[in-house]
């Protein structure tokens, strides 16, 4: 059961469909772990329903109706069975599996420090970077401020920082001004999903890990 959740505004934008692909994927992955937030999103969608129902209807002609009716034969109703029992709530969310196309071990991890490896996943989002971090047990991510925001979701293991200890399903959202130096828990490697602002600055972001100050810390 998750202890750290997305902010209300993120859940609202997610429910409204107005959140970017990468951020929405991260929120959706959290929902996989968190019944409370799933429940909130269902309720937030009802706000959308209310606005939808009370919209001023825009007339649609019979031409369109007939066009749709003519296509019903090619689009036979699908036969739905009730969804099979899903894997346990700690399994990697299906959405992530789709992006990963394999296991964590199949991914092209890039070593950043002895404790940290990173791999990027393609969501097609032009505004946000979507990456997995692999932090060795007990390893520290060097103290870093953010140029933009950073969303993190723990998938395996856990880490701690000045705000607390995070376990699988826990979600954090840090803004530009926040600095933190998360440390993976001592007994297990940590894999987390990170969504960062502005891939246009990806080079900058990549180099940030490489700048002399950080290299000093990373040893």
């Amino acid at each position: 059961m998750a202890t750290f959740h997305p902010q209300l505004e993120l859940l609202t934008e997610h429910a409204a469909g107005s959140l970017s692909v990468a951020q929405s994927a991260c929120v959706a992955a959290h929902l996989n772990y968190c019944a409370e937030c799933r429940h909130s999103v269902v309720q937030l969608q009802n706000i959308g329903t209310a606005l939808f129902e009370s919209a001023d209807p825009v007339p649609v002609g019979d031409v369109l109706l007939n066009r749709v009716l003519a296509r019903l034969d090619e689009e036979a109703p699908l036969h739905h069975s009730s969804p099979a029992d899903q894997a346990g709530s700690n399994a990697t969310p299906a959405l992530l599996q789709r992006l990963m196309q394999g296991d964590f071990s199949d991914l092209p991890w890039r070593k950043v420090t002895d404790a940290l490896r990173i791999t990027r996943l393609q969501t097609g989002d032009p505004n946000y970077e979507f990456a997995l971090y692999h932090i060795k047990a007990g390893g520290v991510i060097p103290d870093h401020g953010h140029r933009g925001s950073e969303m993190t979701l723990i998938l395996e293991g856990g880490f701690s920082d000045d705000r607390g200890t995070y376990h699988p399903g826990d979600f954090t959202y840090r803004r530009q001004e926040d600095e933190h130096a998360p440390q993976a828990l001592a007994d297990q490697d940590c894999i987390c999903l990170a969504v960062l602002d502005a891939p246009l600055r990806f080079t900058g972001w990549k180099y940030r890990w490489m700048n002399p100050f950080l290299r000093l810390h990373a040893g």
Binding site: V21, P83, R98, G124, P126
Partner: peptide, 22 residues
């Protein structure tokens, strides 16, 4: 919207619905 913006993503909006249904 994503199609119109030639936004190439492997994800459809439907994929963002949580799997747990039970």
């Amino acid at each position: 919207f994503r199609r119109l913006q030639k936004f190439d993503t492997p994800l459809a909006a439907e994929d963002f619905t949580p799997e747990q249904d039970g």
